[in-house]
Write a protein that binds this DNA or RNA. Sequence first.
DNA 1: TAGAATCTTCAATAATTTTTGAAAGAACTA
DNA 2: TAGTTCTTTCAAAAATTATTGAAGATTCTA
Lengths: 189, 189
Amino acid sequence: MDELTQALVLHFGEMGSRWGISRTVGQIYAFLVFSEDAKNADQIAEALGFSRSNVSIGLKELQSWELVRPQHRPGDRKEYFSVPEDVWDIARTLVRERRRREIDPTLSVLRAAMVDGSNGSPGSYTHQRVEELHDFIELIVGWTDDMQTLDASDIRRMMKLGAGISRVLDFGRRLGRADTDSPESDHSN
Amino acid sequence: MDELTQALVLHFGEMGSRWGISRTVGQIYAFLVFSEDAKNADQIAEALGFSRSNVSIGLKELQSWELVRPQHRPGDRKEYFSVPEDVWDIARTLVRERRRREIDPTLSVLRAAMVDGSNGSPGSYTHQRVEELHDFIELIVGWTDDMQTLDASDIRRMMKLGAGISRVLDFGRRLGRADTDSPESDHSN
DNA sequence: TAGAATCTTCAATAATTTTTGAAAGAACTA
DNA sequence: TAGTTCTTTCAAAAATTATTGAAGATTCTA
């Protein structure tokens, strides 16, 4: 593994551990992302200095996230792993899996809390906050679902437009702040 | 602490640990979010069954994320902690801090990799991927920066529009695929 | 079916992270 | 300043998570 890849692998291992993915898994994934061709478990173990069994566990985890796909080569019994070419594919998968594993269960808990009248009146502070949070998450989730239907170039264009979207849509009612280098929001709290 | 809050606290503790925040910190935060009034460290320790020192460490962590703010009450020497009323404020803070801690350093690493010609030609596969990833992250970051300038109700309106944005903007040129279930990318590698 | 190659599981060890009580530090009060 | 209240730090203990070699499966070949 060259120095450059090494640096990237170490960095993304670290990042993985800050986002709830183990260092090992992060490193394996980074190694695959920055490698041109698919790698087998032995190659990964060798390059990263992990035991074969550790790599096996890491790959199993990555497969459960659908972040890598195993492939076979004719005349070779080993299994080779690769990641999607397109970074947008990776992002989509990440969003989808995080949603399935964490967001959906959270929405369930919040909905259960909303229905359950056993504690506090339905108008209690806790209930209010539960509802707020529920609506917030549902809004984000609905939006990401919608985004999943757009192709990368459309999303890219939308993002480039950025806040300019408020001009394109009808948000511009409050003319005062148009796009002058506005006094920016207050930060008071 | 009532049953409802208890369930929420346990759930968000669990979620925290899947997003790189420790269970304790997640629980403390959830407890504050779902509590109407600010709490002091002893109240938190008592409610959650943690030692006083553990709570102190957790609160320090939350303060470093700017997720809680300490307040004082006249005639009371204890420090009380609360979270913003508005869930959008919380989200904004989370985005800002994650960016500062993880995204920006990642961009630095990627930029360094792009400049560093010591490994592989500047057109090598690894370099290409680094550039792709860099551009991708920069796009997202630029967009979130833009979003931070919008107020919650504008973002909400934009999100509700969702994929409909492609109709409002000029994305609709490729009429053929309108909203059919497009063939989507290949994942080949 | 025996043997070879490969992958996975598992119980143990190792490493890391969390949690704690006790001690130290700060800030206020009288 | 001494005493009180509250917070933080710290080294040790506890708990959790990661890592491993060895054993067990599985799949293929001859």
